[in-house]
Nucleic acid binder design. Sequence first.
DNA 1: CTTATTAATCGTATATTTGCGATATAAGAT
DNA 2: ATCTTATATCGCAAATATACGATTAATAAG
Lengths: 111, 111
Amino acid sequence: MAFHKKEEFTQKEQDLAAFAKAMSHPARISILKMLAQRNECICGEIVDLLPLAQSTVSQHLKELKNAGLISGTVEGPRSCYCINWKAFEKFNSEFNTLFNNLKIKNEKACC
Amino acid sequence: MAFHKKEEFTQKEQDLAAFAKAMSHPARISILKMLAQRNECICGEIVDLLPLAQSTVSQHLKELKNAGLISGTVEGPRSCYCINWKAFEKFNSEFNTLFNNLKIKNEKACC
DNA sequence: CTTATTAATCGTATATTTGCGATATAAGAT
DNA sequence: ATCTTATATCGCAAATATACGATTAATAAG
């Protein structure tokens, strides 16, 4: 059976993996950079700067939104996307915690 | 056409995305934790602790290896996997740079 | 009310990922 | 040389991700 077994891992592992997954496409990293530079962005600007169709960009935005990394409001023909700083920093610190936990241990590899 | 357009983004964006992708599954995060705790690990120990078949674990190890996050040597019926600290810290600092670049900007969202 | 504009959603095609069992491989033990 | 053990690889199936064009929805402008 090809069911994914993600639910059999700890919540923290799942959360971190979900965060990493949201960042696992260069288009989404690019979008996050844009949002950070301007503090807000409408979808159209992002579409203009990415080599992707409007519907594809919209999908990437949706994924970032589902992951909680950005928030967005749409008023008819206009949208406004922003970075969700709170969630972003939470994940950032969780990531750092993981890295630091790893780094505490012996730093020379055996192989 | 469903070709991926990853190659149309900057190298840094692609590298970061590839790193995130390697971390985007709870099993692989779990494996990294194990490797860090013991500083080395044979595949069998990992298989015992994960709810996955041996062949699946082997695949995850291969992905982590391809991403450059771990190194491993196999001598016949025995293996030795270790975290590749150098690569790991390089990505960690790149990630932090990204986060910091983001955080420099205004921290209150408009939406 | 009609039209234009912007973005979300739907449908679809293709690629990739995840997972497993079966098999192959490689070295140590007998 | 054969058997055992540990791991990688192969082949397959199902799920998910990526991308696009077409359509829909929602508002603003006329």
